[in-house]
């Protein structure tokens, strides 16, 4: 309560400081990802340091990696892959999962049963394992990674959306819409969706974190983004031998992953709340 502050008297939302910090970090990484090619100090493939695992210095802000390349440039470019691939995958997963979930809840019957069992079966395969198998079988390009990550996380989004929509579906206003003769599409998008938007956004955030971590994990195992490109997971992987030297090259990308995932969590736990008491 003490942390909250009204954003403006007109819109009357309260947004806590913790959530604002989370949002600021996310916006920061998004800007870096977008602007990376224009602001990196050195080309990412160029060896700029005579030594490998160089320390932080005024010339190389985050030191150098295992080949003596500039870590700051590689980290900035890595943000493009980590944020971009995860975002694309989470959008596909949440959109298809939510649409199917709401449709299953409203249509019900055999459609619901068949779809639910199929997606449950998909859900029962461990996510890392299926990622490994797909990457090993058909190689890993960025497009394959996006589709694979989306498919892995669709069943979860489906389950979540369906559970929410089933609750809303029993409300009287849905019955009123049905007796009015409304179509299923209208019921799904106009009556149900606005009521489950909040939890769905929270789910979107959580799923984004899961996908970021899975992508980083796959890259760490060498099955994610392939050299010469590198996302943050791959950066940790290729510089892991610097760990005994305490090289910034291995610590910095780890911190980047942590900062992004934690700030997304902070934001979704502290989404702006609408103030119902408008007479204040």
């Amino acid at each position: 309560m003490t942390l909250s502050t009204p954003l403006s008297s007109k819109f009357s939302y309260s947004f806590s400081w913790v959530g604002m910090i989370g949002l600021a970090i996310i916006v920061f990484w998004a800007v870096i990802a977008l602007a990376a090619p224009h602001i990196i100090p050195y080309p990412i493939g160029e060896i700029v340091d005579e030594d490998y695992f160089g320390p932080m210095s005024s010339k190389l802000l985050f030191g150098s990696d295992y080949l003596g390349r500039d870590m700051l440039s590689r980290l900035m470019m890595g943000a493009r892959y980590t944020v971009g691939i995860s975002l694309a995958a989470v959008c596909i997963a949440c959109f298809s999962g939510t649409a199917l979930g709401m449709a299953a809840a409203v249509i019900g019957g055999w459609f619901d049963t068949v779809l639910s069992r199929f997606l449950d079966a998909l859900n029962s395969i461990p996510s890392k394992l299926s990622g490994l198998v797909v990457a090993a079988a058909i190689g890993s390009s960025i497009n394959v990674l996006i589709v694979m990550l989306a498919v892995i996380y669709t069943p979860g989004a489906y389950r979540f959306a369906r559970a929410l929509a089933v609750n809303v579906n029993t409300m009287d206003y849905i019955t009123v819409a049905r007796t009015r003769g409304e179509s299923i599409l209208y019921i799904i998008f106009s009556e149900i969706l606005p009521n489950i938007m909040g939890p769905l956004l929270a789910d979107f955030g959580i799923r984004f974190v899961f996908i970021t971590l899975l992508l980083s994990g796959l890259s760490f195992l060498g099955l994610g983004v392939q050299p010469p490109y590198a996302d943050w997971g791959a950066l940790v992987h290729e510089n892991i031998s610097g760990l005994p030297f305490g090289a910034p090259a291995v610590i910095v990308p780890s911190l980047a992953i942590a900062s992004l995932t934690i700030s997304v969590n902070l934001l979704i736990d502290n989404l702006p709340k609408k103030i119902r008491d408008r007479s204040a």
């Binding site: 409300m171 009287d172 206003y173 019955t175 009123v176 049905r178 007796t179 009015r180 003769g181 009556e191 606005p194 009521n195 938007m197």
Partner: peptide, 26 residues
Amino acid sequence: ARQRSHEQLRELQIVFQHADTALNPA
């Protein structure tokens, strides 16, 4: 209700007990 005509649905309306759940809060 699904098999009734548009006109028939219009002519017969139902009002529920709990306005809380009968009006979409969003």
